[in-house]
């Protein structure tokens, strides 16, 4: 540690000014489209638990990992289209693309399909990033590059995510003569698929470059998305990657209060199995779903990563004034 420069910002002033202009561009984009900015609490007493995400605990409750439940209460109250730019917190996430505190843009479109929202995400990204028309975004055909989860897994990881057994998936992780890592032991089926996503599919996205939408996730990774019964059943969920960096995650939002309650309880059960604390479930959110969430699609986007791409920065720390010190 060189203590001598520790007080100075990590990002250059030029980068921080670009951050300000990106925030301005986002607000202008939504103002033009009649989407209203809202603010919801950062400090929560109950949450929507996630298996692989730990909220930051403080004496008065939790710092939000996402504004999703609060924004859905607004939607159930009839607010119409809304967006929010705010800080989100995730315990222990530090790396080239992670800082435990980061800026999240989240928005909801009432009455929209997932496909409509995908088009709007692409439009927003194209107002901020200069992406070559030939790769992965509205080229002459106006087509977006969309990879179905199962196609991407078949092509780049050599597995069938719907059919293959856990031993078959584990075998696909071993490449002949591979100096690269094999997956950690004790992963479940979805865990091995996650590993293959990180080790095989994401590098392929980086190699191809441009904007790629990944869609039709396994139903086991549905989170708060509606499930398309199939068969095979898939989550009505997408993620968008630019140059291999995951930028945003969107859902056709689940509206069934009972199914949502069961999913959150199941996550708490899995958390306990994994040796983690179960978390208090946001019952006000469940009551809002009970009262009626309008059909809608919503998406959350990492603003710091967007800025990284805009500035061609190597690390998320390079676009933050004062990031948590990384290893």
């Amino acid at each position: 540690m060189s203590g001598s420069v520790a007080w100075q910002p990590a990002a250059t002033w030029l980068t921080l000014r670009r951050r300000a202009s990106v925030l301005r561009q986002i607000r202008a984009f939504f103002q033009q489209r009649g989407v209203v900015e809202v603010e919801t609490p950062l400090l929560l007493s109950a949450v929507a638990p996630e298996l692989h995400q730990d909220p930051m605990v403080c004496a008065d409750g939790y710092l939000q990992g996402s504004p999703e439940t609060a924004m859905k209460r607004l939607l159930a109250a009839g607010c119409g289209d809304i967006y929010q730019i705010g800080r989100a917190f995730r315990c222990g996430e530090v790396g080239r693309l992670h800082n435990p505190e980061f800026t999240m843009l989240e928005w909801y479109r009432v009455g929209w399909s997932l496909e409509q929202l995908v088009q709007e995400v692409a439009a927003l990204l194209l107002t901020i990033l200069e992406l070559p028309a030939s790769v992965g975004c509205c080229g002459s055909s106006g087509q977006l590059t969309v990879w179905r989860y199962d196609e991407a897994m078949r092509r780049y990881a050599g597995v069938d995510p719907w059919q293959d057994s856990l031993p078959q998936l584990a075998e696909a992780c071993q490449l002949p003569g591979d100096q690269q890592a094999s997956p950690p032991t004790g992963l479940d089926r979805q865990g091995v698929l996650d590993w293959l996503m990180v080790q095989r599919v994401e590098p392929a996205m980086r190699a191809q470059g441009g904007m790629i939408f990944l869609t039709a996730f396994p139903a086991t990774a549905a989170a708060m998305a509606e499930i398309d019964p199939g068969p095979p059943a898939t989550a009505r969920r997408f993620e968008v990657y630019v140059n291999g960096i995951e930028l945003a995650n969107g859902y056709q939002e689940l509206r069934d209060a009972e199914q949502q309650r069961l999913r959150l309880q199941e996550i708490n059960r899995q958390r306990r199995l994994a040796g983690k604390a179960s978390l208090p479930i946001d019952t006000a959110f469940l009551q809002a779903l009970q009262a009626g969430l309008p059909p809608c699609a919503g998406v959350a986007l990492g603003v710091d990563r967007l800025l990284m791409l805009a500035m061609q920065a190597e690390r998320i720390q390079d676009v933050m004034a004062f990031p948590v010190a990384a290893g």
């Binding site: 996430e93 790396g95 690269q180 997956p183 950690p184 996650d194 989170a223 995951e246 995650n249």
Partner: peptide, 29 residues
């Protein structure tokens, strides 16, 4: 530190053997 979407988080490390100098990659939960 790498994490696909809402999925399992992994720590990816490149390590050099202190005895024979070979370099390999490992991932951990």
């Amino acid at each position: 530190f790498v994490k696909p979407g809402k999925g399992q988080a992994f720590t990816k490390i490149r390590i050099k053997n202190l005895i024979d100098g070979r370099v390999i990659e490992r991932t951990f939960k």
